[in-house]
Design a protein around this nucleic acid. Structure first.
Length: 777
DNA sequence: GAGCACTGC
């Protein structure tokens, strides 16, 4: 039943001989400079690097202008080791065993005939088309099928249609699960066109904040989280005949849970068909997990991509990436360049250096248009990457991982892959998150390389050695379930009635400490009782699509009569760290604008509330956002979340009450959810966390970073260059008795007294009093 | 004195 993708292999050496003389010269120059300035990557690098570049690159100009000597040696000194990786050759496969006229007749009537003709022609040209019958047979023969479909095979748009044409929709909806909502929307739109029906009718999509389906819907494209939420109301998926999990290799937290639940459901519902569609090498793993499910392979349509590894390891990948971009620009045929960098800061640095260097070269080289792109970049600036490159110019896109899966840019012919990305991992012991520059996996490297071969043959330049690739890089990225806080996942599973989490059949087990600390947290929040059952509080909390400490804060706001303020704060916090936009060149202005919301040192939570309310007062003005360096996109998202939370309040019968003047009530509600996140100030401006005795600092972006109250409650603890607490609000120790007497014990008070350095006398006294007067057990 | 990417009845 397995199909092998046809592969094309060819000699690995030939590109080396295509190097032009200029290229060799550039190479030589770059290498000399790299050797002269070996640099380690460190936190303060940016400044240094920029300064250095601005001076040393002047020499590069001279060399290029004069041309010069020693070409042979240059060629020997610096060259890429070339190795060709094989991809499917672009081909049009024919084969015609399917009657489209018949399909048409059975579909809705209202449609443009000629447009449909063109679409059906396109459908037939997709690589998947010749496999239609065989695929349908396989689905009919097996309840679970793993489908390996390369990019461009047409699996996402065609398989649900094939299933519909084969009559599966008569038994229930055909769900196609996507990891991203843009994909769900755009694919649904495309499929509705192909079927000649109106979007939202037979073909629809369902994503957060938008349910574009109707009674008639038979093909439903939806996000993974959406199906998970639906499962809470319909645990047996009775309204579906087929669930196809697309892009399963991305392994989001939600899809990992879905795998386990769907596997379980399938055992009791033999009529439910399960399709797992994965693009990469881990099909075997999916097959094993689903009890040796059959694997069905479909070739894709992609152009060959030539892979080049660097010969010797580079001291600094950013340096090497910039050098390589310029080298490509000067020596290679037209085609845009995509460079994968780790973050905003790095992209801004690279942009500055590139601008300076190309300016230095003046008219000696063709125009190089530099386009930065990262998730936090305002939408209007992001749009620049999609503008067509003018004749004679070349575009270089400096992107984060956003370009690996989320954004597709046409016209990219060259990919530069330094082999790193910034990744979050979670320490369940301390509850801290770490943001770390990490080597990417082989799967990720393949994905990146593939970005150059979408519209024509491409080239990928990897800034690491072939040896590193084969011997040092992991095959796959560690799945999210193994590097994230599981409190929300555990709450979801508990509300589905799954209690034995340690023996739960995950595809990759999360660390048991992560499950245990999640259970401990839920117990501390009173969401679970002694026997691990969901309490009434827990059931209410599970209704809210936010992390448990946030949902507890919301539930607690009922008591303090400030649910209105609290859901606004929760909505703003759930947007994450992207409310404020701080471009490097306007940092002072942006910082000033941000500090305007901190008057009165009310703390970051209440500052967020002020931001939201101020925006609301301007009638949700975009202009206001620009003036205040605030991301419009984030604010709109917060508004949608807020609407949703308000609706859910009603559902769990919590009255929407406002108590704007009573800041203490708001702070107490926050603390009711976040009491595990208390910290005490030490004399050296750092803080000691009450429970885990971690030494932390208030994040410099906080309004309280200079104020330093004795006691704070924080939203999150992130470990970047230091351990920072972000989103901080003052808390009064005497509130502890009211809020979390069950959580902190006398021994915690004594331990923090013992562990903290140079406490203020007043704080020592308060702690002793707390331990002595019976407040703490 | 700091900043990966997604996403949720």
């Amino acid at each position: 039943m397995e199909r092998q993708v046809t592969r094309r292999t060819s000699s690995a050496e030939d590109t080396g001989s295509e190097m032009s003389e200029e290229e060799r010269l550039m190479d030589q120059r770059e290498k000399e400079e790299l050797e002269q300035h070996p640099k380690e990557r460190d936190a303060s690098r940016t400044q240094k690097l920029t300064e250095q570049k601005l001076t040393t690159r002047e020499e590069g100009k001279a060399t290029l202008k004069n041309g010069s000597k020693n070409k042979k040696q240059a060629a020997d000194d610096y060259q890429f080791v070339l190795e060709e990786i094989d991809f499917m050759k672009a081909s049009v496969m024919d084969g015609d065993n399917f009657d489209y006229e018949e399909m048409e007749d059975s579909l809705e009537k209202s449609r443009a005939k000629s447009a449909l003709e063109a679409l059906k022609e396109e459908r037939r040209k997709l690589p998947i088309y010749p496999y239609r019958e065989e695929l349908l047979q396989a689905i009919s023969d097996h309840q679970v099928l793993v489908i390996v479909g390369e990019t461009g095979s047409g699996k996402t748009t065609q398989i649900p249609q094939y299933l519909h044409e084969a009559g599966y929709a008569k038994r229930g909806m055909i769900a196609c699960i996507q990891p991203r909502c843009v994909a769900a929307m755009s694919v649904a739109a495309r499929v509705s066109q192909e079927m000649g029906v109106k979007l939202g009718q037979e073909v629809g999509y369902s994503i957060r904040f938008e349910d574009c389906t109707s009674e008639k819907t038979i093909l439903k494209y939806m996000t993974d989280g959406m199906l998970l939420r639906e499962l809470l109301g319909e645990p047996d998926l009775a309204s579906y005949s087929v669930v196809m999990v697309d892009e399963a290799h991305e392994r989001t937290l939600s899809t990992d849970i879905l795998f386990a639940l769907v596997k379980d459901i399938a055992q009791f519902h033999p009529d439910l068909k399960v399709l797992i569609s994965s693009a990469t090498l881990d099909a075997e793993k999916f097959s094993d997990y689903f009890d040796s499910a059959t694997i069905f392979k479909i070739p894709g349509r992609r152009y060959p991509v030539e892979i080049n590894f660097i010969k010797a390891p580079q001291a600094d990948y950013l340096d090497a990436a910039i050098a390589t971009s310029l080298q490509i620009h000067v020596t290679q045929p037209p085609g845009d360049i995509l460079v994968f960098l780790t973050g905003q800061e790095e992209i801004e640095t690279a942009e500055e250096i590139l601008k300076h260097r190309t300016r230095g070269l003046g008219t000696k080289i063709a125009e190089l248009i530099i386009c930065p792109v990262y998730a936090n970049l305002p939408t209007d600036l992001q749009a620049k990457i999609f503008e067509p490159t003018p004749e004679g110019a070349r575009k270089v896109v400096l992107a984060t991982n956003i370009a690996e899966t989320s954004l597709t840019i046409d016209g990219i012919k060259y990919v530069i892959d330094p082999g790193f990305c910034e990744m979050k991992s979670y320490n369940p012991r301390t509850g801290s998150e770490t943001l770390l520059v990490t080597p990417i996996s082989k799967a990720s490297a393949l994905q990146r390389a593939g970005r150059s071969g979408r519209t024509g043959p491409g080239k990928c330049f990897r800034l690491y050695t072939a040896y590193s690739f084969h011997n040092e890089m992991d095959d796959n990225t560690v799945p999210e379930i193994q590097r994230t806080n599981l409190a929300n996942l555990v709450l979801t599973l508990k509300s589905l009635g799954i209690h034995d989490l340690v023996h739960f059949d995950f595809m990759d087990n999360p660390p048991s400490e992560a499950i245990i600390s999640a259970l401990e947290l839920l117990y501390a929040l009173c969401a679970l009782n002694n026997s691990g059952q969901l309490t009434k509080v827990g059931r209410r909390m599970a209704e809210f699509p936010v992390d448990p400490m946030l949902s507890k804060m919301i539930v607690a706001s009922e008591k303090y009569k400030c649910s209105d303020e609290i859901i606004s704060i929760a909505a703003m916090l759930s947007v994450g760290n992207s409310i404020f936009y701080c471009p490097k060149d306007k940092q002072v202005h942006a910082d000033n604008a941000r500090m305007n919301f901190h008057t009165g040192n009310v703390g970051d939570h209440i500052a967020l509330l002020k931001v939201y309310n101020s925006w609301k007062e301007t009638n949700y003005s975009t202009q206001w956002c620009y003036e205040n360096y605030i991301q419009v996109r984030s604010m709109k998202w917060a508004r949608d979340v807020l609407d949703q939370l308000a609706g859910l309040l009603e559902r769990v019968e919590i009255e929407l009450t406002s108590n704007p003047g009573n800041l203490d009530a708001i702070k107490k509600s926050i603390a009711s959810g976040f009491f595990p996140h208390f910290a005490l100030q030490q004399k050296d401006r750092s803080y000691k966390t009450f429970k885990h005795l971690e030494t932390v600092n208030i994040h410099p972006s906080s309004g309280l970073a200079q104020v330093l109250p004795s006691w704070v409650v924080y939203h999150e603890l992130v470990f970047t260059t230091k351990k920072y607490v972000r989103q901080v609000t003052e808390f009064k120790l005497e509130w502890l008795k009211e809020i979390a007497p069950h959580y902190y014990q006398r021994k915690d008070a004594m331990r923090v007294l013992w562990a903290a350095d140079q406490l203020r006398l007043a704080d020592v006294m308060s702690l002793l009093r707390l331990a002595a007067d019976g407040t703490l057990l």
